[in-house]
Design a protein around this nucleic acid. Structure first.
Lengths: 190, 190
DNA sequence: CAGAAATTTCAGAAAATTCTGAAATCTACG
DNA sequence: CGTAGATTTCAGAATTTTCTGAAATTTCTG
């Protein structure tokens, strides 16, 4: 591997983090390399830059495509496949969220749904199902929120983030403001 | 393994998902077992229930403690260590978020910070640093939001989730409402 | 259609991880 | 203290994952 030191540091870091992120070292390194590259790269350039086998690159690119994390490009008058990452980091975030949900959350949700259909046979199972129902409920809340929020344009999403917990106060206050606006009398329990 | 079928299904599922979640099969199974159990369990009960070695249980419990996902309990007149998971699933979520951030995000943030301190030596490095700056900026936004929101009480957090993208409209509308409240004249750009 | 260029497949090697059994260590209590 | 019960450590076995090189396949071009 013969890369400028800052690029090398980033690539090696992504390789090391790969396993924590659910990908392997090579996949992480290739992704990092593509993310930093000003123009698309072909497989042989990755072999050269990362000092790994051609077949490893092929398999890793397939993996990155399964994650929708890379784009295949074709240059005019060149038969080779070139790859890039999407330019917009928000788009990358959306893809990552979607794919991780698909791999890490959805299977559990579906197992929980199936188990919760069963009739508990013992007090032990009854208690276990109650726990699973709690977990199922929480995951449902999170995924419903996610499905709702992921449709926002980036500017609004960014605004939501920047507000953070201030929104909480706004929400608590909103009822008051709105009711004032509508001149609806407040109830004790508001 | 001789468990009621619904419990067994859940435990096996957690074992299978373990590797995707950054833990291993045994750690996943033990966690699942503890989560469903109505009372704390000692190591030998886990050996019995999951049909694994005592040493494996010991190491896996250490791992779960490192994640802050289990609590150590002591029963009166019993020298053995008993373990449970926290009862509140929202608390579990908070722990999970904190620990995953620590393992999956913080190291990258710190590498990015370090690299961005360097002076780029070539146009290639200049471009790479610009990309890394984008990534750093996005992660910062996300972690700042997280640090802000994690301090909310659960009820408010749940409310925020249930509002989802509706909050976006509320935020966009808030300026209007508030300015009406304050009788501030609206500008064209509002 | 022949063949050159590019990519993919896959069996087995290499490496990393997980798990076990045996020994060592710790701890409470008589 | 001594010892019995409980837990931890750790070397090596078992398993899983990752990687390679060689062969097969696909795809474009003349």
């Amino acid at each position: 591997m013969n890369l400028p030191s800052t690029i090398q540091a980033f690539v090696l870091h992504f390789g090391e983090m790969g396993s924590r992120w659910g990908i392997n070292r090579t996949v992480g390194q290739i992704y990092a390399l593509l993310f930093l590259s000003p123009e698309p790269l072909c497989a042989d350039q990755m072999v050269e830059a990362l000092d790994i086998s051609r077949s490893n690159v092929s398999i890793s690119l397939r993996e990155l495509q399964a994650w929708n994390l890379v784009l295949l490009k074709h240059l005019p008058d060149d038969r080779r496949d070139f790859f890039t990452t999407p330019g917009d980091v928000w788009q990358i975030l959306r893809t990552l969220a979607e794919e991780r949900k698909k791999r890490e959350v959805d299977p559990t949700l579906s197992v929980l749904r199936a188990i919760l259909m069963e009739e508990p046979q013992t007090p032990q199972e009854r208690h276990a199902q109650a726990r699973m129902a709690e977990m199922h409920g929480l995951i449902k809340q999170l995924t419903t929120w996610y499905d709702d929020v992921k449709g926002l344009e980036t500017a609004r999403l960014a605004m939501l983030l920047s507000m953070g917990r201030k929104i909480s106060r706004l929400v608590e206050g909103a009822d008051k403001v709105v009711s004032l606006g509508r001149s609806r009398p407040r109830r004790e329990t508001d």
